[in-house]
């Protein structure tokens, strides 16, 4: 019994991931002439402290750093440092007991081109339940705020802070383990609030914009960033293949469609490949 720890403490876990993604509409533009597609390499390091208070209650703190490296549009290259604090309650014993959680998050996003550099805050409430060893579901609502004061006004009377955004949303997700190694995850969500779209000068977008700024990231002086009020519908499918209990390889497809006023609508597709390892 001498090997036993006299006092157990918080569970610390370090995780890291590396991968790449390709997005066919980084500008979130409606017209094909304004769309810019590119890929990026990604890396992420996360430290998690999980502290069970009782068998049913736990708090979790995370600190993370991540980055995206764009070769083509290097102004989008960014480094993000952030953290979360969450509380989770499980209603009873066993894997099938439903749970609720509340998480607060914050990050500083530093982009090579300052227009997108910003501070983000979000609060998220989730609930979930595992129905079998193979199948679980969860749903959540969130509010997010992105603070930006880098955009310079180019139209008198209209703000230049196009990345000063607020929005709220809801989502549902379901996970299914087809085999010991292969896991599928599906998510669908809706977000209502401020969105950003980059396009050439247009009266249609101008009259519904709440902020406009030059967007030098694309190397095209005809492109401007606009802040709009819109609704985004999202769907994502992830296939995750476990290489061991500590690591997995994920492939994700994500689809977003945003509708704003004046019949403005834009779509984006993203494919993400990620290798995840937990130490």
């Amino acid at each position: 019994m001498g090997l036993l720890c006299a006092q157990a403490h918080a569970e610390w876990e370090i995780g890291a991931s590396a991968g790449a993604f390709y997005d066919d509409n980084l500008t979130r533009a409606q017209n094909s002439v304004d769309k810019r597609a590119a890929g990026a390499a990604t890396a992420n390091v996360i430290g998690t402290s999980f502290i069970p208070l009782t068998g049913s209650d736990a708090v979790t703190f995370t600190l993370y750093g991540r980055g995206e490296l764009f070769e083509r549009y290097s102004g989008l290259t960014n480094l993000v440092a952030g953290g979360t604090a969450g509380y989770r309650h499980k209603f009873g014993l066993g894997y099938a007991a439903p749970w609720v959680s509340l998480t607060l998050g914050g990050s500083f996003d530093d982009y090579r081109e300052d227009l997108r550099t910003s501070t983000r805050l979000d609060v998220r409430a989730e609930t979930g339940k595992r129905f079998t060893e193979q199948f679980d579901m969860s749903a959540g609502v969130y509010y997010e705020r992105r603070y930006d004061n880098h955009g310079e006004s180019i139209v008198p009377g209209i703000s230049g802070h196009v990345f000063d955004l607020a929005g709220q949303g809801a989502y549902v997700r379901a996970g299914y383990a087809a085999t010991d190694a292969l896991y599928f995850d599906a998510k669908a969500g809706v977000r209502r609030g401020d969105v950003e779209s980059t396009s050439q000068r247009s009266f249609q977008i101008f009259i519904i914009s709440t902020a406009i700024a030059n967007d030098p990231v694309w190397g095209d002086p005809n492109l401007y960033a606009y802040r709009l009020d819109g609704t985004t519908w999202s769907g994502a499918l992830t296939a995750s293949y476990a290489l061991s209990d500590q690591s997995s390889f994920d492939a994700e497809y994500r689809y977003d469609v945003t509708r704003a006023g004046q019949g403005l609508e834009y779509m984006a597709n993203r494919i993400v490949l990620t290798f995840i390892h937990r130490f």
């Binding site: 998220r124 992830t238 990620t274 995840i276």
Partner: peptide, 18 residues
């Protein structure tokens, strides 16, 4: 029967929203 076990391996898809 195949062993049915809750997955322990990490996955990026389990957390978060949009």
């Amino acid at each position: 029967k195949p062993e049915v076990k809750i997955r322990r391996a990490p996955t990026g898809g389990q957390r978060g929203g949009y």
